[in-house]
Amino acid sequence: MTPRNLRPFIPIFSVLLALGLGSVVIAATGTNPIEVYLRMIRSTFGSGYGFGQVLFRTTTLVFAGLAVAVPFRLRLFNIGVEGQLLMGSFAAALCGMALPAGVHPLLGVPATLLCAMAAGSLWAITAGWLKVGYGVNEVISTIMLNFIAQAITGYLLTNHFAVPSTVHTPAMVPGATLPGFDQLLGLSWHAPANLSALLAIVVSSATAILFYRTRYGYTLTASGLNPEAARHAGIDTDARILWAMAIGGAIAGLGAGNLVLGYKHCFESGLTTGAGFMGIAVALLAGAHPVWILLSALLFGWLDYGGLTVNTLVPKELFMIVQAVTILCIISFSAFFRGRPAK
Protein backbone atom coordinates (compact mmCIF):
# COMPACT_ATOMS: atom_id res chain seq x y z
CA MET A 1 0.00 0.00 0.00
CA THR A 2 2.73 2.45 0.91
CA PRO A 3 4.73 3.92 -1.92
CA ARG A 4 8.33 2.76 -1.92
CA ASN A 5 9.87 6.15 -1.30
CA LEU A 6 7.85 6.64 1.89
CA ARG A 7 9.07 3.42 3.50
CA PRO A 8 12.25 4.81 5.06
CA PHE A 9 10.18 7.33 6.98
CA ILE A 10 7.96 4.79 8.65
CA PRO A 11 10.20 4.43 11.72
CA ILE A 12 10.29 8.20 12.10
CA PHE A 13 6.51 8.45 11.91
CA SER A 14 6.28 5.64 14.43
CA VAL A 15 8.59 7.38 16.86
CA LEU A 16 6.72 10.67 16.56
CA LEU A 17 3.39 8.99 17.03
CA ALA A 18 4.75 7.10 20.02
CA LEU A 19 6.10 10.22 21.66
CA GLY A 20 2.74 11.84 21.02
CA LEU A 21 0.84 9.02 22.68
CA GLY A 22 3.33 9.05 25.55
CA SER A 23 2.52 12.73 25.99
CA VAL A 24 -1.15 11.92 26.26
CA VAL A 25 -0.41 9.44 29.06
CA ILE A 26 1.71 12.01 30.86
CA ALA A 27 -0.82 14.78 30.36
CA ALA A 28 -3.55 12.52 31.74
CA THR A 29 -1.80 12.63 35.11
CA GLY A 30 -1.81 16.39 35.08
CA THR A 31 1.81 16.96 34.16
CA ASN A 32 2.91 19.00 31.20
CA PRO A 33 4.47 16.53 28.77
CA ILE A 34 6.55 19.19 27.04
CA GLU A 35 8.19 20.04 30.33
CA VAL A 36 8.89 16.36 30.93
CA TYR A 37 10.48 15.83 27.54
CA LEU A 38 12.48 19.04 27.79
CA ARG A 39 13.79 17.99 31.17
CA MET A 40 14.67 14.62 29.71
CA ILE A 41 16.64 16.20 26.91
CA ARG A 42 18.41 18.62 29.22
CA SER A 43 19.34 15.99 31.75
CA THR A 44 20.61 13.56 29.16
CA PHE A 45 22.28 15.46 26.37
CA GLY A 46 22.86 18.55 28.49
CA SER A 47 25.49 17.09 30.77
CA GLY A 48 28.49 14.84 30.43
CA TYR A 49 27.12 12.55 33.10
CA GLY A 50 23.72 12.23 31.41
CA PHE A 51 25.25 11.68 28.04
CA GLY A 52 27.58 9.04 29.42
CA GLN A 53 24.66 7.23 31.01
CA VAL A 54 22.70 7.25 27.76
CA LEU A 55 25.75 6.09 25.85
CA PHE A 56 26.27 3.26 28.31
CA ARG A 57 22.72 2.01 27.97
CA THR A 58 22.80 2.47 24.22
CA THR A 59 25.90 0.30 23.97
CA THR A 60 24.25 -2.69 25.62
CA LEU A 61 21.19 -2.19 23.43
CA VAL A 62 23.26 -2.13 20.25
CA PHE A 63 24.67 -5.54 21.09
CA ALA A 64 21.24 -6.83 22.07
CA GLY A 65 19.66 -5.44 18.90
CA LEU A 66 22.31 -6.98 16.69
CA ALA A 67 21.90 -10.29 18.50
CA VAL A 68 18.27 -10.22 17.39
CA ALA A 69 19.02 -8.93 13.90
CA VAL A 70 21.47 -11.63 12.82
CA PRO A 71 19.15 -14.60 13.35
CA PHE A 72 16.32 -12.49 11.96
CA ARG A 73 18.12 -12.51 8.64
CA LEU A 74 16.92 -16.12 8.54
CA ARG A 75 13.52 -15.18 9.88
CA LEU A 76 14.43 -16.65 13.27
CA PHE A 77 13.17 -14.81 16.33
CA ASN A 78 15.88 -14.78 18.93
CA ILE A 79 13.90 -14.00 22.07
CA GLY A 80 16.76 -15.45 24.08
CA VAL A 81 19.16 -12.50 24.06
CA GLU A 82 18.54 -11.93 27.76
CA GLY A 83 19.67 -15.45 28.61
CA GLN A 84 22.62 -15.25 26.24
CA LEU A 85 23.66 -11.96 27.78
CA LEU A 86 23.39 -13.42 31.28
CA MET A 87 25.47 -16.45 30.41
CA GLY A 88 28.01 -14.28 28.64
CA SER A 89 28.28 -11.89 31.58
CA PHE A 90 28.65 -14.69 34.06
CA ALA A 91 31.33 -16.37 31.99
CA ALA A 92 33.15 -13.06 31.61
CA ALA A 93 33.09 -12.43 35.35
CA LEU A 94 34.41 -15.89 36.11
CA CYS A 95 37.12 -15.62 33.50
CA GLY A 96 38.16 -12.21 34.79
CA MET A 97 38.35 -13.64 38.31
CA ALA A 98 40.40 -16.60 37.30
CA LEU A 99 43.03 -14.77 35.29
CA PRO A 100 46.37 -14.10 37.01
CA ALA A 101 46.43 -10.73 38.72
CA GLY A 102 49.11 -9.19 36.57
CA VAL A 103 47.74 -10.15 33.16
CA HIS A 104 48.24 -7.60 30.42
CA PRO A 105 44.97 -6.05 29.15
CA LEU A 106 45.84 -6.95 25.56
CA LEU A 107 45.67 -10.56 26.65
CA GLY A 108 43.16 -10.40 29.49
CA VAL A 109 40.44 -8.43 27.70
CA PRO A 110 40.29 -10.55 24.56
CA ALA A 111 40.33 -13.71 26.63
CA THR A 112 37.47 -12.49 28.78
CA LEU A 113 35.47 -11.30 25.78
CA LEU A 114 36.02 -14.63 24.05
CA CYS A 115 34.68 -16.41 27.11
CA ALA A 116 31.60 -14.19 27.06
CA MET A 117 31.06 -14.77 23.36
CA ALA A 118 31.51 -18.50 23.69
CA ALA A 119 29.00 -18.71 26.52
CA GLY A 120 26.41 -16.58 24.69
CA SER A 121 27.00 -18.52 21.52
CA LEU A 122 26.62 -21.86 23.22
CA TRP A 123 23.35 -20.78 24.72
CA ALA A 124 21.96 -19.56 21.40
CA ILE A 125 23.22 -22.48 19.38
CA THR A 126 21.33 -24.82 21.69
CA ALA A 127 18.13 -23.29 20.34
CA GLY A 128 19.49 -23.56 16.80
CA TRP A 129 20.33 -27.18 17.29
CA LEU A 130 16.87 -27.94 18.69
CA LYS A 131 15.39 -26.25 15.64
CA VAL A 132 17.54 -27.98 13.04
CA GLY A 133 17.52 -31.39 14.65
CA TYR A 134 14.03 -31.63 16.07
CA GLY A 135 12.05 -28.81 14.55
CA VAL A 136 11.53 -27.08 17.92
CA ASN A 137 10.31 -23.53 17.40
CA GLU A 138 13.10 -21.15 18.33
CA VAL A 139 10.76 -18.70 20.06
CA ILE A 140 9.75 -21.29 22.61
CA SER A 141 13.21 -22.73 23.11
CA THR A 142 14.90 -19.35 23.51
CA ILE A 143 12.28 -18.25 26.06
CA MET A 144 12.84 -21.43 28.04
CA LEU A 145 16.59 -21.00 27.78
CA ASN A 146 16.15 -17.54 29.31
CA PHE A 147 14.60 -19.09 32.39
CA ILE A 148 17.32 -21.68 32.60
CA ALA A 149 20.05 -19.07 32.26
CA GLN A 150 18.45 -17.01 34.99
CA ALA A 151 18.25 -20.00 37.29
CA ILE A 152 21.77 -21.27 36.59
CA THR A 153 23.45 -17.90 37.08
CA GLY A 154 21.34 -17.25 40.17
CA TYR A 155 22.19 -20.61 41.67
CA LEU A 156 25.89 -20.43 40.89
CA LEU A 157 26.06 -16.89 42.18
CA THR A 158 24.39 -17.42 45.54
CA ASN A 159 25.75 -20.87 46.25
CA HIS A 160 29.25 -20.77 44.89
CA PHE A 161 30.70 -17.55 43.67
CA ALA A 162 29.20 -14.58 45.48
CA VAL A 163 31.31 -12.67 47.95
CA PRO A 164 29.77 -13.66 51.29
CA SER A 165 26.65 -11.63 52.23
CA THR A 166 26.60 -9.81 48.87
CA VAL A 167 24.95 -10.56 45.52
CA HIS A 168 28.01 -10.13 43.33
CA THR A 169 31.11 -12.07 42.43
CA PRO A 170 34.58 -10.92 43.46
CA ALA A 171 36.08 -8.20 41.30
CA MET A 172 37.95 -9.15 38.15
CA VAL A 173 41.66 -8.62 37.76
CA PRO A 174 42.47 -5.16 36.36
CA GLY A 175 43.90 -6.68 33.20
CA ALA A 176 40.46 -8.01 32.27
CA THR A 177 38.63 -4.70 32.43
CA LEU A 178 37.89 -2.09 29.80
CA PRO A 179 38.65 1.56 30.62
CA GLY A 180 35.84 4.10 30.87
CA PHE A 181 35.83 7.25 28.75
CA ASP A 182 36.74 9.33 31.80
CA GLN A 183 39.93 7.43 32.26
CA LEU A 184 40.57 7.21 28.57
CA LEU A 185 40.01 10.82 27.55
CA GLY A 186 40.62 12.51 30.87
CA LEU A 187 36.99 13.58 31.21
CA SER A 188 35.00 13.88 34.36
CA TRP A 189 31.64 12.50 33.28
CA HIS A 190 31.58 9.99 36.15
CA ALA A 191 29.35 7.90 33.93
CA PRO A 192 29.75 4.20 33.14
CA ALA A 193 30.24 4.72 29.40
CA ASN A 194 33.36 2.85 28.31
CA LEU A 195 35.43 1.66 25.44
CA SER A 196 32.88 -0.98 24.43
CA ALA A 197 30.81 1.79 22.85
CA LEU A 198 33.43 1.80 20.10
CA LEU A 199 33.32 -1.98 19.98
CA ALA A 200 29.56 -1.73 19.42
CA ILE A 201 30.10 0.51 16.41
CA VAL A 202 32.71 -1.84 15.02
CA VAL A 203 30.48 -4.89 15.49
CA SER A 204 27.52 -3.14 13.91
CA SER A 205 29.60 -2.16 10.86
CA ALA A 206 30.98 -5.66 10.62
CA THR A 207 27.46 -7.05 10.73
CA ALA A 208 26.39 -4.66 7.98
CA ILE A 209 29.30 -5.80 5.86
CA LEU A 210 28.45 -9.41 6.56
CA PHE A 211 24.84 -8.86 5.54
CA TYR A 212 25.24 -6.73 2.48
CA ARG A 213 28.73 -7.16 1.15
CA THR A 214 29.74 -10.78 1.54
CA ARG A 215 28.81 -13.98 -0.20
CA TYR A 216 27.96 -15.53 3.10
CA GLY A 217 25.51 -12.70 3.72
CA TYR A 218 23.91 -13.39 0.36
CA THR A 219 23.37 -17.02 1.30
CA LEU A 220 21.88 -15.92 4.61
CA THR A 221 19.46 -13.61 2.84
CA ALA A 222 18.49 -16.30 0.37
CA SER A 223 17.93 -18.86 3.12
CA GLY A 224 15.78 -16.43 5.02
CA LEU A 225 13.59 -15.38 2.11
CA ASN A 226 13.06 -18.75 0.46
CA PRO A 227 14.69 -21.66 2.30
CA GLU A 228 13.43 -24.19 -0.21
CA ALA A 229 14.98 -22.38 -3.17
CA ALA A 230 18.16 -21.80 -1.18
CA ARG A 231 18.51 -25.51 -0.51
CA HIS A 232 18.00 -26.22 -4.19
CA ALA A 233 20.71 -23.70 -4.97
CA GLY A 234 23.15 -25.67 -2.87
CA ILE A 235 23.01 -23.55 0.26
CA ASP A 236 23.10 -25.57 3.46
CA THR A 237 20.26 -23.83 5.27
CA ASP A 238 20.64 -25.90 8.44
CA ALA A 239 24.23 -24.79 8.77
CA ARG A 240 23.10 -21.22 8.21
CA ILE A 241 20.60 -21.53 11.04
CA LEU A 242 23.25 -22.82 13.43
CA TRP A 243 25.71 -20.13 12.44
CA ALA A 244 23.21 -17.30 12.58
CA MET A 245 22.21 -18.33 16.09
CA ALA A 246 25.85 -18.77 17.08
CA ILE A 247 26.81 -15.33 15.79
CA GLY A 248 23.75 -13.75 17.38
CA GLY A 249 24.56 -15.39 20.71
CA ALA A 250 28.19 -14.31 20.51
CA ILE A 251 27.16 -10.71 19.93
CA ALA A 252 24.75 -10.92 22.85
CA GLY A 253 27.66 -12.21 24.93
CA LEU A 254 29.69 -9.19 23.86
CA GLY A 255 27.16 -7.10 25.76
CA ALA A 256 29.08 -8.32 28.78
CA GLY A 257 31.97 -6.23 27.54
CA ASN A 258 29.93 -3.18 28.40
CA LEU A 259 28.23 -4.36 31.56
CA VAL A 260 30.96 -6.42 33.17
CA LEU A 261 34.32 -5.50 31.68
CA GLY A 262 33.52 -1.84 31.26
CA TYR A 263 31.38 -1.07 34.29
CA LYS A 264 30.71 -3.48 37.13
CA HIS A 265 33.90 -5.54 36.91
CA CYS A 266 31.96 -8.43 38.41
CA PHE A 267 28.71 -10.32 37.92
CA GLU A 268 25.85 -9.07 39.98
CA SER A 269 22.24 -10.12 40.24
CA GLY A 270 19.96 -7.87 38.19
CA LEU A 271 22.91 -6.85 36.05
CA THR A 272 21.19 -6.99 32.68
CA THR A 273 18.03 -5.03 33.60
CA GLY A 274 16.07 -6.60 30.77
CA ALA A 275 18.31 -5.18 28.04
CA GLY A 276 18.03 -8.49 26.18
CA PHE A 277 14.30 -8.04 25.78
CA MET A 278 14.64 -4.40 24.84
CA GLY A 279 16.94 -5.58 22.04
CA ILE A 280 13.93 -7.06 20.25
CA ALA A 281 12.27 -3.66 20.09
CA VAL A 282 15.55 -2.05 19.04
CA ALA A 283 15.94 -4.46 16.13
CA LEU A 284 12.31 -4.19 15.08
CA LEU A 285 12.35 -0.41 14.94
CA ALA A 286 15.51 -0.53 12.85
CA GLY A 287 14.03 -3.08 10.47
CA ALA A 288 16.90 -5.32 11.62
CA HIS A 289 19.37 -3.16 9.70
CA PRO A 290 22.69 -3.16 11.59
CA VAL A 291 23.42 0.52 11.00
CA TRP A 292 19.94 1.76 11.87
CA ILE A 293 20.22 -0.29 15.04
CA LEU A 294 22.75 2.26 16.29
CA LEU A 295 20.13 4.99 16.06
CA SER A 296 17.31 2.91 17.35
CA ALA A 297 19.40 1.78 20.32
CA LEU A 298 20.20 5.42 21.02
CA LEU A 299 16.50 6.23 21.15
CA PHE A 300 15.75 3.39 23.54
CA GLY A 301 18.84 4.15 25.60
CA TRP A 302 17.67 7.72 25.90
CA LEU A 303 14.17 6.72 26.92
CA ASP A 304 15.61 4.29 29.42
CA TYR A 305 17.87 6.71 31.19
CA GLY A 306 15.76 9.79 30.52
CA GLY A 307 12.89 8.12 32.33
CA LEU A 308 14.97 8.00 35.49
CA THR A 309 15.80 11.67 35.35
CA VAL A 310 12.20 12.85 35.36
CA ASN A 311 11.35 10.85 38.45
CA THR A 312 10.29 13.93 40.34
CA LEU A 313 7.82 14.97 37.64
CA VAL A 314 6.43 11.60 36.67
CA PRO A 315 6.31 8.54 38.93
CA LYS A 316 8.62 5.75 37.84
CA GLU A 317 5.79 3.31 37.13
CA LEU A 318 4.07 5.84 34.96
CA PHE A 319 7.16 6.34 32.92
CA MET A 320 7.46 2.62 32.48
CA ILE A 321 4.01 2.77 30.94
CA VAL A 322 5.16 5.56 28.65
CA GLN A 323 8.16 3.47 27.60
CA ALA A 324 6.02 0.41 26.97
CA VAL A 325 3.47 2.43 25.01
CA THR A 326 6.25 3.88 22.94
CA ILE A 327 7.64 0.45 22.12
CA LEU A 328 4.20 -0.94 21.33
CA CYS A 329 3.43 2.00 19.08
CA ILE A 330 6.67 1.73 17.22
CA ILE A 331 6.31 -1.98 16.70
CA SER A 332 2.69 -2.01 15.68
CA PHE A 333 2.92 1.08 13.56
CA SER A 334 5.83 -0.25 11.57
CA ALA A 335 4.26 -3.66 11.32
CA PHE A 336 1.03 -2.07 10.15
CA PHE A 337 2.75 -0.41 7.23
CA ARG A 338 5.41 -2.93 6.42
CA GLY A 339 3.41 -6.07 6.95
CA ARG A 340 1.07 -5.64 4.02
CA PRO A 341 1.63 -7.52 0.82
CA ALA A 342 3.16 -5.43 -1.90
CA LYS A 343 0.17 -5.11 -4.22
Binding site: R215, T219, H232, A233
Partner: peptide, 28 residues
Protein backbone atom coordinates in the same frame (compact mmCIF):
# COMPACT_ATOMS: atom_id res chain seq x y z
CA UNK B 1 9.04 -22.44 -4.83
CA UNK B 2 12.38 -23.86 -5.87
CA UNK B 3 14.19 -21.75 -8.37
CA UNK B 4 13.86 -18.09 -7.50
CA UNK B 5 13.60 -15.64 -4.64
CA UNK B 6 10.86 -13.24 -5.70
CA UNK B 7 11.86 -10.49 -3.24
CA UNK B 8 15.39 -10.21 -4.57
CA UNK B 9 16.46 -8.43 -7.73
CA UNK B 10 16.97 -10.20 -11.02
CA UNK B 11 20.74 -10.00 -10.58
CA UNK B 12 20.66 -11.73 -7.24
CA UNK B 13 18.37 -14.33 -8.76
CA UNK B 14 20.77 -14.90 -11.58
CA UNK B 15 23.36 -15.67 -8.95
CA UNK B 16 21.23 -18.19 -7.12
CA UNK B 17 22.82 -21.60 -7.39
CA UNK B 18 25.73 -20.11 -9.27
CA UNK B 19 27.00 -17.98 -6.42
CA UNK B 20 29.90 -20.38 -5.88
CA UNK B 21 31.40 -19.60 -9.29
CA UNK B 22 34.75 -17.85 -9.01
CA UNK B 23 33.99 -15.60 -11.95
CA UNK B 24 31.41 -13.72 -9.90
CA UNK B 25 33.62 -13.30 -6.87
CA UNK B 26 35.60 -10.34 -5.70
CA UNK B 27 37.11 -10.32 -2.23
CA UNK B 28 34.60 -11.63 0.25
Amino acid sequence: KNAVIPELGIRENLLLGRHAEQAFHRGF
